[in-house]
Amino acid sequence: MRPGKMIKEVLRSIIKKPATNLYPAEELAMPHNFRGKLIFHPEKCVGCKLCMKDCPTGAITINKVGEKQFQAVIDLGKCIYCAQCVDSCLKKALETTKNVELAQLDANKLKVTFSGESKTGIENKTP
C-alpha cells in the first residue's frame, strides 16, 4: 500500500497541453464513416419508398411531384442519423454528409425539402 500513488500523474498534467478541443475555434474532423445530415438526389430516385418504410422514426417522406419526379421532405428533428435509408435505397439517391451543426431556433426550419425539379439535389429552402 502506498498513499498518493497518482500524485506524479497529477503534477505532470500541469505542464501538459489541455485534453479538450477548442471546438468552435478549431473545427473537428469527422470520422470517415460519420453519419450527418442527409442529402437527396432527386434525379436518381425512382419512388420505391423503401426509405420511408425502413425509417425507424418516420423522418423521411417522398412525394411525387411530376412524371418520374420526386421530392423528399426530411425532418431533421425526427431523424436519428442511423443512415438505414442510405442502406435501403437501391438507386443510391440518398447520401450522408458530415454536417453536424444543425441546431435551429425555429422548429420549422428543421424540415428540409429537397425539390424534385432541382437536378443537383440542392435543398430548396422554402417548405
Binding site: 470520422p31 470517415h32 464513416n33 460519420f34 453519419r35 436519428i80 442519423y81 442511423c82 443512415a83 438505414q84
Partner: peptide, 11 residues
C-alpha cells in the same frame, strides 16, 4: 467513432 461513425449508438 473511427470504425462505426458514431461515438455511441454505433448502428
Amino acid at each position: 467513432a473511427l470504425i462505426t461513425g458514431n461515438r455511441v449508438n454505433y448502428g
